[in-house]
Amino acid sequence: MHKIDAFCHIMPRPYYDRFMSLDVGLHAQNLRKRVSNIPCLVDMDVRFGQMDEFGDYRQIINIAAPPVEDIGSPAISKEMSRIGNEAMAELVANHPDRFAGFTACVPMDDPEAAVAEYEYATSELGALGAQIYTHVHGHPMDSPDFEPFYAAVAASGGLLQVHPCRSSAWADYPTEERSKFEIWWTFGWEYDLSAFMARIVFAGVLERHPELKLLIHHGGSMVPFFAGRVGPGWDQLGARTPEHQKEDVTGYPLTKRPIDYFRMMYADTALFGSAPSLRCSIDFYGVDHVLFSSDSPYDPEKGPGYIRSTIANLQELDLTDAERAQIFHGNVTRLLGLPEPAGAPR
């Protein structure tokens, strides 16, 4: 069965070399150490050798963390976005049998530049959408500054991948200075994703742009498991809030239940080999809103591990062949207008 991996990370050689040459902050230094130990991010021979294991399999690639906003000034963000986008476009053009496409890197610390780079990447380079993070230097993504960007992505029909982002500087408790035991990553990133989704809902982004295609990493994060709190819980929003705090629960006028907006989003299958988590995600979003994704190459094998385990999860779950085909390639093909593979089930 044809498989399109809809959320994979890469650092093309021109981008990697420039990234390694820059004087970056502590968070970017941490992530630079991580990416320097994963050969297939940069070495395509290694990457293609790993991909061969999975037969009829292609990837949609994006630039690996850290966000370009964390690398340097807005000028550096724009420079790195352009380097990354042109390098990814070249990889897709040279290896269509390996890469189904790429999503653009955009400098969100300059919203006007982000719109311009998105339009350049989609219209000139063939990008399928963009990847953004859950905040920009701690600023929320429901800020009115980003409205033109969301409008541009919605109008283009592109896929907007959402990746979490925080560092050990985000402490576990207010009395501490740093997060311990990588809690900032294991649980903090999932809170970031979930908070992003909620702010997008209550700020009315999907009310104004119902055609916006948001792909939430890691199976839609905490939302499927806490659907009772997201549904009946948020149906009571403000009912227990004191009058002097009413502004905390006053958002954009919504015409549907909050949970209905969460279900408008899409989830990937990047759950690191947990079949029960994947079942929960599919049950919440529905088969037609789940896209196969592995989050490669951040597994202990540095490339193929999460691809293999995610495929195994989808094979072991109680799904029909047609449902598996939807998740493996049908949904992303439909969403982005990609050509159907020869002989694919319909």
Rank of each mutant, 00 (worst) to 15 (best):
residue 193 L to I: 10
residue 185 W to I: 09
residue 203 A to L: 04
residue 207 E to V: 03
residue 234 W to K: 05
residue 154 A to Y: 02
residue 249 V to G: 02
residue 186 T to L: 15
residue 156 S to R: 04
residue 164 P to H: 10
residue 160 L to W: 09
residue 157 G to M: 02
residue 191 Y to E: 11
residue 144 P to F: 04
residue 162 V to P: 06
residue 202 F to E: 01
residue 180 K to C: 00
residue 249 V to F: 01
residue 221 S to E: 11
residue 161 Q to G: 11
residue 147 E to Q: 03
residue 141 M to S: 05
residue 192 D to Q: 06
residue 148 P to N: 02
residue 210 P to A: 00
residue 246 K to E: 05
residue 143 S to L: 15
residue 130 A to R: 02
residue 197 M to V: 10
residue 210 P to F: 01
residue 188 G to R: 02
residue 139 H to G: 09
residue 207 E to Q: 08
residue 243 E to C: 02
residue 160 L to H: 03
residue 149 F to V: 03
residue 185 W to P: 00
residue 247 E to P: 01
residue 149 F to S: 03
residue 169 A to S: 13
residue 250 T to Y: 00
residue 230 V to M: 15
residue 168 S to E: 15
residue 207 E to H: 03
residue 236 Q to Y: 07
residue 209 H to V: 06
residue 251 G to I: 01
residue 188 G to F: 04
residue 142 D to W: 12
residue 168 S to W: 10
residue 205 V to I: 15
residue 149 F to C: 03
residue 228 G to R: 13
residue 170 W to Y: 05
residue 216 I to K: 08
residue 212 L to I: 08
residue 239 A to P: 00
residue 234 W to I: 10
residue 195 A to N: 14
residue 155 A to D: 15
residue 236 Q to T: 09
residue 138 G to Q: 08
residue 172 D to M: 02
residue 160 L to Y: 01
residue 242 P to K: 10
residue 221 S to W: 07
residue 189 W to F: 11
residue 139 H to Q: 15
residue 226 F to S: 13
residue 148 P to A: 00
residue 226 F to N: 15
residue 134 T to G: 08
residue 236 Q to C: 11
residue 185 W to K: 08
residue 184 W to E: 07
residue 142 D to K: 13
residue 235 D to R: 14
residue 141 M to W: 07
residue 166 R to Q: 14
residue 172 D to K: 00
residue 231 G to C: 08
residue 235 D to H: 11
residue 230 V to F: 15
residue 201 V to W: 06
residue 231 G to E: 15
residue 192 D to H: 01
residue 201 V to K: 10
residue 247 E to K: 11
residue 161 Q to H: 10
residue 249 V to D: 02
residue 177 E to P: 02
residue 143 S to H: 14
residue 178 R to G: 00
residue 195 A to L: 15
residue 163 H to Y: 08
residue 205 V to P: 03
residue 192 D to F: 03
residue 229 R to H: 13
residue 163 H to T: 06
residue 156 S to G: 05
residue 211 E to M: 08
residue 158 G to K: 05
residue 202 F to Q: 02
residue 226 F to M: 14
residue 133 Y to T: 12
residue 220 G to S: 12
residue 243 E to Q: 11
residue 156 S to C: 03
residue 201 V to Y: 08
residue 196 F to Q: 10
residue 211 E to F: 00
residue 167 S to N: 04
residue 211 E to G: 14
residue 131 Q to D: 08
residue 250 T to D: 00
residue 186 T to W: 12
residue 216 I to H: 09
residue 130 A to I: 04
residue 196 F to S: 07
residue 239 A to E: 12
residue 209 H to F: 14
residue 159 L to E: 06
residue 134 T to M: 10
residue 182 E to C: 11
residue 234 W to N: 06
residue 246 K to N: 04
residue 218 H to C: 04
residue 201 V to E: 10
residue 248 D to H: 14
residue 223 V to Y: 09
residue 246 K to P: 02
